[in-house]
Amino acid sequence: MKLSRFASIVALTVATALPTIAVAADKPVVGLVMKSLANDFFKNMLEGAEAHAKKRGDYELKAIGMQNETDFESQLNGVENFITQGVDAIVIAPADSRAMVAPLKKAMDAGIVVVNFDVSLDEQAKKDAGVDLAFVGPDNRGGAKLVGDALAKDLGNGGKVVILEGNPGADNAAQRKLGFEDAIAAGKLDLLDSRTAHWETEEANAVFSTMLTAHPDIQGVLAANDSMAIGVVKALDAAGRSDIKVVGFDNVPAVAPMLKDGKLLATVDQFGSEMAANAIDKALAVVAGGPKLEGWVKTDIKLVTKDDVK
């Protein structure tokens, strides 16, 4: 008796809730799935998307983030919630390039437009699941090549360099390392050592100081993100070495003074704050009946040097 009453209440609530969603959906709803919001880069990206939603005004934005970089369970739950809510499009920066394929397939099967940005889903995993999904995002390898070339140009042939890598196993870390290696090969640089500092300032500071002890003849440093580049610059300050050139990646605000006084030679801006907004535009175009996205839609990257800092 009690149970059936409970069931009828649930049924009633669901029945009244469903039409509300449907009525409110005259504006398309975009579900934005972000990575860790405890990170300047994604924080800026989210703010960019929110500003974009306000400016366009013709869609409703629902955003979710994660606790930290590896917490893909909350992404998974987020995608499932968006499917249940029946959003029109899901725009996602996947936390794991394999784990997110299955839930996204479920979303596509439910007729939701899915756009993948920031980090590309794994090709093989996509093939295995029978998913055909375009990627909107920057070329991390190309960006790393760009900034690596700037260093190679400054050092000339035979310049001795070391690499500080991001997290082992992370796709963007691997891509950036490949890009650095491309630049090293093209510029005929001499790679002395390559180690991870897990994207971290303090660890980069310690690891690089030790690398410098082992190879006092280092002339250039390629850091896979600016946080690590900051640690390297501080280590050079402490060691009193102003002859070593450093390049980074991301163009975070904290490096502006370092670019200005020449402690950082260059970094790469991949316009993180516009990246989510860009992907949303692409998704809305498809929702409005535009052609399906295909392959890799590359977004802008730009080399940032002293000249770009006012």
Partner: peptide
């Protein structure tokens, strides 16, 4: 003092 930054994710 060492690293000249303070970040909430250190």
């Amino acid at each position: 003092a060492r690293l000249n930054i303070a970040s909430p994710i250190i």
